[in-house]
Each structure stands twice: as C-alpha cells, then as structure tokens.
Design a protein around this nucleic acid. Structure first.
Lengths: 137, 137
DNA sequence: CCCAATTTTGACAATCGTTGTCAGTTTTCA
DNA sequence: TGAAAACTGACAACGATTGTCAAAATTGGG
C-alpha cells in the first residue's frame, strides 16, 4: 500500500495565499474559485484569477480544503472543521453545509468494491437538499 | 410532494436519435458525448455534435440513461439495465461498470437530511476503483 | 543586510466541454 | 398532400479552467 497522505510541505508564504486563506477561513459554505476571486477584488485585494485557481488546487491537493463538484460542473471549495474523511449535506440554493460522517457507508462501499474485485477504491458522496432557512421556514 | 417522474413523452423518431440509441445500446460502459460522437463519425454515420449533446441530455432527463460526472469534469452516459435508483462501481482506467443498489445508503442519506431539516433531498454516490482486469490480474 | 537561486505571480492566450443561434430539413398528422 | 411543429447542423459563443512566460517576491546563506 502506498497511500501516503502526509501534508505535503506548504510552500512559500505570499500575500496572495494569505488572502485566499483568509477568505476561506471566514466562509462557512462552499465557494467557487470565481466567487472567491470576486470577493478579493471587491475588497480591493487584487489577486490574479489564475493564482486563486492555483492556490485552491494546492490546498485541495494537500487536503486542507474539501472540493465539491456542483451540478453546474464547477468546483467549490471549503475549509472543513472535521479532520478525517466525511461527506456534506449541502443546500441547493444557499449552499449552507453540514458535515456528516457515515462509517456504515464507508464500510458498504469498500465491501461492495471488494466483492467485485475492485481495488484502490474511493468514492464520492454528496447529499443535496433545501435547508430549513431556504425552505422559507 | 411534486416529484412526478413520468417518462416524459418521447419526441420524434429521427435517424440521428436512432444512431445515438444504437451506440448506447451496444456500449457496456459509460461514454462521453464527445466519444459517442467520434464513434458515429468513425462509422460514417454523420450526426452533429450538438445533436449528440441534445439527444443525450434528453435521454438523461427522461431517465433513459444514467449520467456520471467524471473527475475531469465531463459527463458520461450509460444505458442502465437496472430499473430503479442505483449507483455505480466504475473502473478508473477502463470504465468497466457494475450497477449496485444500496438501500441502506438511501435510508441513511434521507435520515441524515431529515435530521438537519433539509427537504427535497437527493444525493450522488459513485464508487471508483481499479477493476480486476485492469489490476493486471 | 544583500544577493542569487528558486518559487510565485498575473495578464493574457488557449483549451475544453457544453450550450445558443438560426436557417434549412424532416416528421407528424389531419 | 400540406403545413405546423420539432429537429438538425455548422458555427459562434460561453464559462470554467489551465498554460505561458516575463516580471516580481520570498528564502536561505554569506
């Protein structure tokens, strides 16, 4: 098994990365690269769009943020509280997110895969719905 | 609850749709619109790319084919044997697919959603791995 | 503190999958 | 058969993302 997942060394500290980090830190819900870039601009903190993409990608590779692929085919990022592997319950309209863990699901997926002889198994699972607030409650 | 899912009326029968249908019928694994289009071309059956996209989309809307969003952000389609809701165990390299049902997972996702007050719940779950054949077995 | 090596940035072009446009073609059905 | 209505295809347009490459910033050592 060569599934090392050590927190690949953070590289250089730059104004831009700090800016991206900051936004992620204060953002509860998933946010796209474009939106994050827009927020930075609106605050007068000029950071190149490409840089935002690169930074988010690096963070994702390091496991520092979670990535979610929306129905519209865009990637959304979020700094998660929970440490280990987990999933998300995301509101369709406002993106409000709840982190959930489902040990049973993990077990199920790997057993199913094993049953069929599949190895090096991974899975994606996201739950979408309308949160109470958006449900006009 | 307004979750009607009646098989929206099939529209007109055209040479192009028949062609797309045919390829789907004989293709075991998930295939992208682009690839399907390429196959048609290679067979001399000229069908516009836009038409392929439109046809696949319609089929997907009608629930006649399943859609899968690959890591690379492209949509892949497949005519599934199983009737109801199910998931897929897909080989990363050759796309070999196994249809799997997980009633427990369905129950889990909806109960988790309910717990948090989320309504109109849906979920995506795909399992990826390396199939026995590709594992060089 | 200053420098050189190395990494990072950013403006912009380029790519990729996908959707919109719209005139011309085909299907359907009365 | 004759239209109305749906469908097609070539091509433009699009939005997200990645590649390019010279200029700028960071780092560790002297």
């Amino acid at each position: 098994m060569s599934l090392e997942q050590q927190p690949v060394k953070e590289h250089r500290r730059t104004r831009q990365r700090a800016a991206v980090d900051e936004v992620l830190e204060e953002t509860e819900d998933f946010i796209s690269a474009q939106d994050l870039h827009a927020i930075l601009r609106s605050r007068g903190m000029s950071v190149g769009l490409a840089t935002v993409y690169r930074t988010l990608q690096t963070l994702a590779d390091n496991g520092d943020v979670d990535v979610l692929h929306t129905a519209g085919g865009e990637a959304a990022y979020r700094r998660c509280a929970r440490e280990g592997h987990h999933h998300h319950l995301v509101c369709r309209s406002c993106k409000a997110t709840v982190e959930v863990a489902g040990p049973a699901v993990e077990r199920w997926t790997s057993s199913v895969a094993k049953e069929h002889g599949y190895t090096d198994v991974a899975h994606t699972l996201e739950i979408f719905g309308t949160c109470p607030r958006c449900a006009q409650g």
